[in-house]
């Protein structure tokens, strides 16, 4: 079983459209949407949810205002500016302390040191994750709660469930739709994977971000290939990006032309290769052929 992760550094370069198209071209595949704070793959693949679970990624503190004596110790020791003197009064104090759940880092230090045992500290639900059936195979996806943290942990969980399904059902491939950036969720989605495909665009921003994401995959020692979406928006920069990528030890998987039909396919809830007969679809087929070959080589 092989795991392919599609990431980009810069957002909006076409990761999800490409993953959906690969799902239509490949067989025996499990899909994992690891962009858990802005998941979009479900909009194309129309999943039927067969299992739904809560996700708890950490703990959080909460002050019981009845027990708070307003001593101020918690505010003094909190490193995350999560505690303020805005809680309701009780019989002993006119005002009490309270915790901003969005700012709380879940370290539990306030609860440990509260002399009045007024701070409850326990697990919270930060989101939900799903196992679904789609026309292209099983899919694992998730929804992080509004303004919640712990996206990296949810990514790890989605990946783990997708691999379990691949093993149980004897499927050969896991495709992971990653998130933008190079931080926590991206690191959680690439660690130990067989191959990373970086999708970029021919802009100076795309070139800059490709460099950072290539450094990241090298840092973690993961084989990486690159493709350029909308390459014809600026051919000079396309050539520059390809030269830089080769210089960094990346292999080139191909180019995708600019075509408004990519957006039309999205509106029709279809992947590009399901909607467009040729042109941009041929570009994606070529890239899939190269990625498939790189996957076969990876780890052998």
């Amino acid at each position: 079983m092989k795991e392919l992760v599609v990431i980009s550094g810069k957002g909006g370069t076409g990761k999800t459209s490409l993953v959906a198209s690969f799902a239509a071209l490949a067989e025996k595949v499990v899909l994992a949407d690891c962009d858990v704070d802005a998941a979009d793959l479900h909009l194309v693949l129309d999943p039927k949810i067969v299992r739904r679970e809560n996700f708890s990624g950490g703990k959080r503190a909460r002050i019981n205002s009845d027990l708070c004596t307003a001593c101020g110790k918690c505010e003094e020791i909190c490193r995350f500016d999560a505690i303020s003197f805005d809680g309701p009064g009780n019989g002993n104090a006119d005002k009490t302390y309270c915790i901003d759940p969005i700012a709380c880092e879940g370290c539990g230090v306030c609860a440990w040191f509260c002399a009045d045992k007024a701070i409850e500290f326990g697990p919270v639900v930060n989101g939900e994750w799903f196992i679904s059936d789609t026309r292209r195979g099983p899919m694992v996806h998730a929804k992080l709660g509004v303004a919640e943290a712990n996206s990296g942990k949810l990514v790890s969980l989605v990946r783990a469930e997708a691999k379990k399904i691949a093993e149980d059902r004897k499927l050969d491939l896991v495709f992971i739709d990653g998130s933008p950036g190079i931080g926590c969720p991206v690191i959680a989605s690439i660690g130990g994977a067989d191959l990373v495909l970086v999708v970029t665009e021919p802009t100076l921003s795309g070139m800059h971000d490709m460099g950072r994401v290539a450094d990241l995959t090298r840092h973690f020692g993961i084989e990486t290939v690159l493709c350029i979406n909308k390459w014809d928006v600026n051919e000079d920069i396309t050539l520059q990006i390809e030269a830089r990528a080769i210089g960094r030890g990346l292999k080139l998987a191909g180019r995708i032309r600019y075509d408004r039909a990519v957006t039309e396919a999205q509106i029709k809830k279809l992947s590009v290769v399901e909607y467009v007969p040729n042109g941009v679809t041929n570009d994606i087929r070529d890239i899939w052929g190269n990625v498939r070959a790189a996957l076969d080589e990876a780890g052998e």
């Binding site: 079983m1 795991e3 790890s156 990946r159 783990a160 997708a162 691999k163 379990k164 093993e167 959680a188 660690g191 130990g192 973690f220 020692g221």
Partner: peptide
């Protein structure tokens, strides 16, 4: 093995 090896893994491959 490197960090995060066990994430997602179950049994061999």
């Amino acid at each position: 093995v490197a960090s995060h090896f066990g994430i997602g893994r179950r049994g061999g491959r």
